[in-house]
């Protein structure tokens, strides 16, 4: 398995995730796209760990997973809160950033 192929796969997944963040309006889907981007990064870390021959890359990927888990918890709580007040999970609705 050529590591550069893995990294290319990781780049493709990352880009798809980015596009998903940009085009989807459902906050939960957007969130899942962010998770996809994180996973793509993890994949790159794993590939790099293998290329360079030490486990630090895997440790970093592990930390990314931990942080992602924490992020998911808080993020979903925020989504639920927003949904409760606005009855919608669309991220276009809270465009109050404008004011």
């Amino acid at each position: 398995m050529n590591p550069s192929n893995v990294v290319i796969l990781s780049a493709i997944l990352f880009s798809i995730g980015a596009v998903g963040v940009l085009v989807r309006r459902n906050a939960i889907i957007v969130f899942m796209c962010v998770e996809l981007m994180l996973n793509a990064a993890n994949l790159a870390f794993v590939a790099f760990a293998r290329t360079s021959g030490n486990l630090d890359g895997q440790v970093v990927a592990f930390f990314v997973m931990v942080v992602a888990a924490a992020e998911v918890v808080v993020g979903l709580a925020i989504i639920v809160t927003i949904f409760r007040t606005r009855r919608s999970a669309s991220i276009d609705e809270p465009n109050l950033l404008k004011y």
């Binding site: 980015a18 963040v21 940009l22 085009v23 309006r25 991220i91 276009d92 809270p94 465009n95 109050l96 950033l97 404008k98 004011y99």
Partner: peptide, 14 residues
């Protein structure tokens, strides 16, 4: 461009 839509901002970030 300052539309208040988070996705627009994300677009410019990308």
């Amino acid at each position: 461009y300052q539309s208040g839509f988070a996705r627009s901002y994300a677009l410019s970030m990308v």
